[in-house]
Write a protein that binds this DNA or RNA. Structure first.
Lengths: 208, 208
DNA sequence: GCCTGAGTTAAACAACTGTTTAAGTTGTGG
DNA sequence: CCACAACTTAAACAGTTGTTTAACTCAGGC
């Protein structure tokens, strides 16, 4: 984050309204298709406030992505740490990630859209995050799984697999809500259990 | 597709160049962040040719998405049909989908980004596709899995789960290629086998 | 009350956007 | 050769874009 981004002594309400409006609009229309005047209107601020608080439209995007990715990394570290066998740790991770995604649906959709993008202004943050996630998954999941269960899944397979599988419901929810109501319901413990079951079976059971 | 979209008696090379350039640029930068002049430059055509061939920029997007989604639906129908048990059919589907995604990496990334978008001009196609996929998965996978394996996974969970899990490697490849070289290598049979293994274990094995 | 910093605004700006239009070119068939 | 359809182009257009700037307002501290 640039040093010249303005932060008041008190947490600014306008700033938070911009963030909320940005998450909403960016997730539904995409970053580039959302104009700043539309965003400002929804946030009830003047269009210049985005530059004032975030330096630029892209600065706003970076902040949203950084916040989301670092939250995800933090929860992975918290849930995967410890000396227990991998299974309870993986259970904890799955439940925590699903809850995190549920609570940050818009940010998740935005992040998923931005992951494969190659914008030079943004890519470094993503690379830093990806490296840290890969390291965490390798140390905390891939190696213990290999040790305890004899399955060798490299981190560049396991990382994307976990994140995508756990994201799936949320990614498709906006379109599936037009087909059936269930996908938009808040994720419940039965669904968490079901997805946990599928993933634990898939990752920790013996050769098929 | 609008009737006034121009199709020549001979397959137009310019048209195909536009499609190729669009897939490339839309997948890397997103639809809205890709300007038509940039696209025309890469395709070596005049900017008016997009409207000439596709009616509009959005017409081009619709065509790319329709083509991708219908290909995916077709392969699902082909691989999942028949009276065999669900396991060999699911195996076939997984291998075919991974190959399809490998061969249409750019279109996949574009489609994944567009899935949660709510653009009124495009959403109907996605809904039609989603309904058809759900019906296919329900009939061909959910019900047989419940029958043969006693696992009840609703189509609105299974559909997104399969598609996302099989997409994962490709979604993260552009960013992970900066971390390690493997994610960008063409998908090999060992990786297909590994992902098949994980999914079959996860979906078809007994309660954990 | 004054000063200062933070927040806010309206206007301006240069650049870009997708689309349209009219003219021109090319290829094919009679 | 001519007619016609398909393809191609350059220019124009109205609208939109993100950013900048200067002026103003507000709040807090001295």
């Amino acid at each position: 984050m640039k040093e010249d981004v303005n932060l008041g002594k008190r947490e600014s309400e306008s700033r938070q309204r911009i963030i909320d409006a940005a998450l909403h609009l960016f997730s539904k229309k995409g970053f580039s298709a959302t104009g700043l005047r539309e965003l400002a209107r929804e946030a009830d601020v003047n269009v210049a406030m985005v530059s004032y608080f975030f330096g630029s439209k892209k600065g706003l995007l970076k902040e949203l992505l950084d916040h989301f990715f670092s939250g995800y990394l933090d929860l992975a570290r918290e849930t995967l740490s410890g000396d227990e066998p991998v299974e309870p740790r993986l259970r904890r991770f799955i439940a925590a990630a699903l809850t995190y995604f549920e609570n940050h649906r818009d940010a998740l959709l935005l992040a998923l859209a931005e992951i494969p993008r190659d914008d030079p202004d943004i890519i470094e943050h993503k690379i830093i995050w990806a490296k840290q996630m890969m390291a965490e998954f390798d140390q905390r999941l891939c190696q213990p799984i290999a040790h305890e269960h004899g399955r060798n899944i490299p981190p560049h397979i396991l990382g994307p697999l976990l994140t995508s599988t756990l994201s799936a419901r949320f990614l498709f929810a906006p379109i599936l809500q037009q087909v059936a109501p269930e996908p938009c319901a808040p994720i419940d413990s039965a669904t968490i259990e079901q997805l946990t079951d599928v993933l634990l079976h898939g990752l920790l059971r013996d050769e098929f």
